[in-house]
Design a protein around this nucleic acid. Structure first.
Lengths: 142, 142
DNA sequence: CCACTTTACATAGGAAACCTATGTAACGGA
DNA sequence: TCCGTTACATAGGTTTCCTATGTAAAGTGG
């Protein structure tokens, strides 16, 4: 593995960390925003499925979803086929909130990007997506 | 402002958020790692200067530095020229810890990158750096 | 049809990494 | 010398995550 690549990767980690704090401060990226994104993409899902897709623990997702319910951005209904399960569905207010949040963050980042080539921004987005979605390197046996 | 650009920017924000959580879980990126990076780049600095460079509040930096002192990764000495100020200096153990942490994160990300072109990874790093370092868009007056 | 495991969530408790507001002591200029 | 500024420390709170564990419904083998 090239030293250069490790160095570049280190930078990505470092800057991602600072960027997130900046977004949290200057826009406001609630934990629930990610969940709304997932529901927008996949439609109604259960708590466990949401947790898996967002790569967090199930209790964390329970809490996040409850917070979203209180805000009126999603509803929790019983799954008719399985009394244990829950179906989390985005409400119309949730869809509005998602659009608003996306726009705020998008515009913040776009303004910070300044005169960066759009193609370079797209490359960055693609690389980040890959980083998030690629499976974990197996450690040890498995 | 182009809709496409806003969409790309939104993705960058979303993926940065997920990436950071992934790094925290799979490598282990202590809050202090960023401070060590800064000290490595700039040499000994005061608390306030560190806070400014890391873009966090001064109390947060006080806490982070104290934690680093407890771990033996930095020392706090009085500034001989100013009794109020503190000089935070990285120790040899801190330098080792920084190298170790960088390597762990770098290798994690590099392995996740898989067969992404190195040039694309470098572009992503450059874009992220810009996002972190470009000044805030002025909101309103000043 | 009755244990027994598994699955889907909920609850409890706690840790990390931030923040704002405020206090204290030294510095520095009028 | 007085007073505003600067450099930190402290207090107290929030957000976002975690592990461990409990509960109830759903499958499953005998």
């Amino acid at each position: 593995m090239s030293e250069d690549l490790v160095a570049t990767s280190t930078e990505i980690g470092l800057y991602a960390s600072r960027l997130l704090r900046r977004i949290r401060r200057e826009a406001d990226l609630p934990a629930g925003a990610r969940v709304l994104s997932i529901l927008d993409e996949h439609g109604p899902l259960g708590i466990g499925q949401l947790a898996k897709l967002d790569q967090c623990s199930q209790p964390t997702m329970t809490g996040t979803v409850n917070a979203l319910v209180e805000r009126g951005w999603v509803t929790k209904d019983a799954d008719p086929a399985d009394a244990r399960a829950t179906r989390v569905t985005m409400t119309r207010e949730g869809a509005v909130a998602l659009r608003t949040s996306r726009r705020a963050i998008g515009e913040l980042i776009a303004s910070l990007l300044g005169d960066v080539e759009h193609a370079d921004a797209a490359t960055a987005a693609r690389v980040l997506r890959l980083l998030v979605e690629s499976p974990s390197p197996e450690k040890g046996h498995r």
